[in-house]
Design a binder for these strands. Structure first.
Length: 200
DNA sequence: CTGACGATTCACT
DNA sequence: GTGAATCGTCAGC
């Protein structure tokens, strides 16, 4: 499997990157447990001009600083005090674009994913929804700043390809506070894939 | 220092 | 469909 490169992540179109991440394989090798899943749903966050982004209006804080760094880093943060959400930093340094991984189809290490979830193991809860993705793969805020160009957390192309007709777009989920920007078609997912989270 | 709240999930009615 | 869980972050004082 070919690992995605800095050239892939550093392009200026965050929406193109989010679309092209569909079908790729997200791999983590943490605590001696190798787990991976095929990406089936993503969302793009378009930096300073996107009200739904943490970096909207060039907001810089300790938390968002990682988004201003170079492409190919992991940005993971705690949401609602309970769930970790996994993002990939893209574009050039000082341009805080990011792609949120919303759902995966589990491939390897499924037994570890069930163990990580402890309660109510198995089923669609393993990969559908951004909180579940991070949970199953063992990702927490500790992993913010990790480089996806190394071997602990990375995304690879295993040759799986999608037809254009299999890729669907829609408005992002859970960002109603962003006004008009909540309507942008920045959510990308694979048509008819059972692992896509389908709330709201 | 304080208080409000979120790129969510799940159990329960 | 509704609401609780739960805590780091951020703005304001």
């Amino acid at each position: 499997m070919d690992k995605l490169t800095y050239e892939f992540y550093s392009r200026s179109s965050v929406t193109a990157i989010a679309r092209e991440l569909l079908g790729k394989v997200l791999v983590t090798n943490l605590d001696g447990m190798l787990t991976s899943g095929r990406i089936v749903e993503t969302e793009a966050y378009n930096g300073v001009v996107d009200k739904a982004s943490h970096a909207w209006n060039n907001r810089r804080t300790n938390r968002t600083e990682i988004m201003y760094k170079e492409a190919g880093h992991a940005y993971i943060y705690l949401c609602y005090g309970i769930h970790y959400l996994f993002n990939i930093v893209t574009s050039k340094t000082e341009t805080p674009h990011a792609v949120l991984i919303r759902a995966i189809e589990p491939l390897t290490g499924v037994e570890y994913m069930i163990k990580r979830k402890k309660s109510s193991g198995g089923g669609k809860h393993l990969g559908a929804g951004p909180g579940n993705v991070a949970k199953s793969l063992g990702l927490t805020t500790r992993h913010t700043g990790f480089s996806l160009l190394e071997d602990v957390i990375y995304i690879a192309d295993d040759g799986f390809s999608l037809k254009k007709s299999q890729i669907k777009t829609g408005p992002r989920i859970g960002v109603d506070y962003a006004g008009d920007d909540a309507l942008l078609p920045y959510r990308f997912f694979i048509k008819d894939n059972p692992w896509v989270s389908g709330k709201k």
